[in-house]
């Protein structure tokens, strides 16, 4: 008879030790993990463009608030389940039906947290949405080059470089502004100059797609009949990859894209080369048509 409470006590303390160990492990994981596992607790999608940086920062602030609420709720839950479990011969629980001040308290508290989140969002919104100014090393608008006007807030210090993005099952087509008569375009890979604000005008010619290069900021859906806008500004030369983010059919997962950022003179040279190549291939096309027609007449 004496043994029984003793054994129960031992089991209880073992259980308690286990719970403490578990909570400790979770805590340690939360403290240590961000260093070891960057990208596990916050978006890795940063480093390419200032808007992506700001989104990442905004996420981290809201995550910090969220984790406090998470720990509070889970802590209360686990504590109640351990502390208030049924014990033989324990007292009948008090039949409490509510507590108005307490309930008003957590209603107001939840509301206040959300107001804080709204304020923080609007503080960062402008930096995320409005294009930054092109830097001194960026592409400068040459005389006679017309950049289309943009509906998103004007970039300070000169017009951004405007590229038209067209989603098609299952690839992306990019159209660049150029001084010559030839429309310069490319597929799959977009080439842009560094330190230059690039403004994208995004649409689709068939079904809905979504333009997304994670390191260069958020998504913009490509919807037929609509033009969506986003922007980025890359400091360092490099390649940034992405994949279509709206289910668009069989080839959706393979509808990838990349942005290659190069120094300005390299960009200008690439545009020239691309224009020449396009003109040349059109001439070849015309020549082969004439040849075919001549052959048919004979």
């Amino acid at each position: 008879m004496i043994l029984r409470p003793l054994r129960a006590g031992a089991a209880n303390s073992r259980r308690r030790a286990l719970i403490v160990a578990l909570l400790g492990a979770i805590g340690a994981l939360l403290v240590l993990a961000p260093g070891a596992l960057a990208g596990v607790f916050s978006p890795e999608n940063a480093g390419g463009s200032p808007n992506a940086e700001n989104i990442s920062l905004l996420y981290k602030i809201s995550f910090a608030i969220a984790i406090v609420i998470f720990l509070l709720v889970e802590g209360l839950l686990v504590y109640s389940l351990v502390k208030y479990r049924f014990r033989r011969g324990g007292p009948e629980p008090a039949q409490i039906r509510g507590n108005a001040p307490l309930e008003i308290g957590w209603t107001v508290g939840a509301g206040l947290i959300l107001v804080v989140l709204i304020v923080i969002t609007f503080i960062y919104l402008d930096d995320i949405e409005s294009p930054a100014a092109s830097g001194p090393n960026g592409l400068q608008a040459a005389e006679g080059v017309q950049f289309a006007s943009v509906d998103q807030p004007e970039a300070p210090g000169g017009d951004p470089l405007q590229i038209e993005v067209n989603g098609q099952q299952y690839l992306w087509r990019f159209e660049y502004p150029s001084s010559g008569d030839t429309q310069v375009f490319s597929y799959y890979e977009m080439v842009v100059p560094i330190d230059t604000t690039v403004s994208l005008q995004i649409t689709s010619q068939d079904v809905a797609h979504s333009w997304w290069i994670p390191d260069l900021g958020g998504k913009a859906d490509a919807i037929p009949g609509y033009t969506n806008e986003t922007w980025f500004k890359i400091e360092e030369p490099g390649v940034y990859r992405g994949v279509c983010a709206e289910l668009c059919g069989e080839g959706h997962a393979d509808m990838r894209a990349q942005v290659r950022a190069v120094p300005v003179d390299e960009y200008s040279a690439w545009i020239e080369q691309q224009a020449t190549d396009i003109e040349r291939s059109q001439e070849l096309l015309a020549a082969s048509r004439r040849q075919r027609e001549a052959a048919a007449e004979q």
């Binding site: 989104i55 996420y59 809201s62 969220a66 919104l125 995320i128 900021g217 958020g218 998504k219």
Partner: peptide
């Protein structure tokens, strides 16, 4: 996570 997704600039990254 729903509240985080409701912050629309963050959703631009996390959506889909």
């Amino acid at each position: 996570s729903g509240v985080i997704l409701a912050i629309f600039p963050v959703d631009w990254q996390l959506h889909d």
